[in-house]
Structure formats: structure tokens, C-alpha cells
Simulated assay, not measured.
Amino acid sequence: MGYLNNNTGYPQDLLMSRAIVKRGNYALITPDGLVKNIIPGFENCDVTILSTPKLGATFVDYLVTLHPGGGNDQGFGAPGIETFLYVISGAISACAGDERYSLTQGGYLYCPPGEKMTFTNASNGTSQLFLYKRRYTGIEGRAPWRVSGNTSQLERIQYEGMSNVILQDFLPKEIDFDMNMHILSFEPGASHGYIETHVQEHGAYILSGQGMYNLDNEWVPVKKGDYIFMGAYSLQAGYGVGSETFSYIYSKDCHRDVEI
């Protein structure tokens, strides 16, 4: 059923999948169906490409498993491209500019356009990363800067005043940045206050728990390890179920007008 759960070869049951792909609208991509992609620069890594412009996104998301000694010494990023790295599990050593960063679970690194990041596995086992890249939309006289830290250091904000839904913002709320990364966490039974409809798009990787998610007015069960793409104007909302906190990391474009 996939390389992530080491369940390959002949199936013992019917071929089936929970995945849903509606290009330009939304997608649910489950871990059982993920395949490895060979990408220059990634050595001793299992790389899966998630959202891309082929799906309807303006960004690219990746799920990367670094084996012992694995990493990217060539550099992730390009002229005009901003990048973001989040450590799902394990530990890595990352470099950007003249700085070196030791990042453990919950650690992150944002690099502004044109600045490449490199990284290597720093654990004895495997480490897993969530990677993001997007072409930066600039504003005259303004520019973003490199940001790094750990989720343990981020402010826990009550989402729209709800004490059982917690938001954490990774990047400054400044117009220099045209996107942000967040973690949204729902206690069991907690939900969005309403079904959202907006021009911004998301790529969301579920870090823990289980939930029900409204995707274009279809309620879909989701759980840890699933990935969701939500396109512009795709109706969206969720709530946590079960006994564990339902949380996910997600991107959101922001601080820019619409070009016509």
C-alpha cells in the first residue's frame, strides 16, 4: 500500500484508496498511495511531491524522509523562489547564508527568494521533513528575511476567540512576506466557527489526530499523515474527532492584491 508503511507487493485485499483528486479545487492525498520521486540534489532521501501547479496550486509541497547520511547539499531554492522547511520528526542540520541551524522536531527555517538552504540528517535513524517552495510576489522597497525557530517558542493564539482551537504563526505578519505557515490545532469536538470561502489556497499536512473536513461541501474523514490541497474558493472547514488533538501545518498566501 505504499513505501511509507513498508507495505508493497501483492495486496491481500481489493485495491482501494481514500484519496480524492479534483484538480484546481481540492485534493486529499493519503500516505498509502504515495510514491518516491527522484529529484537532483536529494541524496539518500525518499521524496514525494505533493501539491504542484499541475494540481492547481501556485506552490509546491514535498514530504521528505532522510535516511542516515541523507540530505540536500546542492541547495533547495532558486532565484525568485522562497522556501520553507519544517521538521516533522528526527533532527537535521541546515545551512542558509553563513548560518547553521540545528533543528529538531518542530523546528523550521524560512529562506527568502534567491537564498538556498541545504540540510543533512542529524539523527541516528530517519528524519522526516515538510518542504515548501513558491515564487515570491514582491513589493517595491520591501523584502522578506530569513526566519528560524521551533513551534515550542511560538505564541499560542485562540483562533477567532475559541479556546479549544489554537493557531500558531511561523512568520511575521508583515507585508514583506507574501505567505505564512501556520499550525492549527483542534481539541476533540472543536471546529471552525464557519465554513470558509476565500481566494487564498492551502497545502496542509496533518500532524496528529483525526478529523472530519469539509472540502467543497463534501465531508471527508482525515487523519495523521494525510495531505490536503485546498484551492482558491474551495469551501473548507474541519473539526476534531477521537481522543487526540487534531492538528495540521498549512501554508497560506497573504498580503497581496489580486492581479488582473
Rank of each mutant, 00 (worst) to 15 (best):
G80N: 10
N121L: 05
H192A: 01
F246V: 05
V60P: 02
V222M: 02
G211H: 03
E218G: 03
I81P: 00
A57T: 04
Y110M: 06
Y250A: 02
I183D: 00
T126R: 15
T83I: 09
K252V: 15
G107A: 14
G138M: 05
Y248E: 06
P53A: 06
V220E: 05
Y227V: 03
Y250L: 14
P188K: 01
L235H: 13
G71M: 13
Y205E: 02
T58F: 06
R18D: 13
R134E: 02
M16A: 14
G33V: 12
I175S: 06
A143N: 04
N7R: 12
G90R: 14
R135D: 01
S234T: 12
D169F: 06
N150R: 11
L50T: 00
H67R: 15
T58E: 11
K22G: 04
K22L: 07
G9P: 13
F130A: 04
Y10W: 13
K224F: 00
G9R: 12
L129H: 06
I88E: 08
Q74L: 15
Y227S: 00
V60I: 14
L34S: 00
L15Q: 14
V199D: 09
N25S: 07
C45I: 08
L131C: 06
T52C: 07
R18Y: 04
A94D: 03
P31W: 11
G138T: 11
R134D: 01
D98E: 14
Y213C: 11
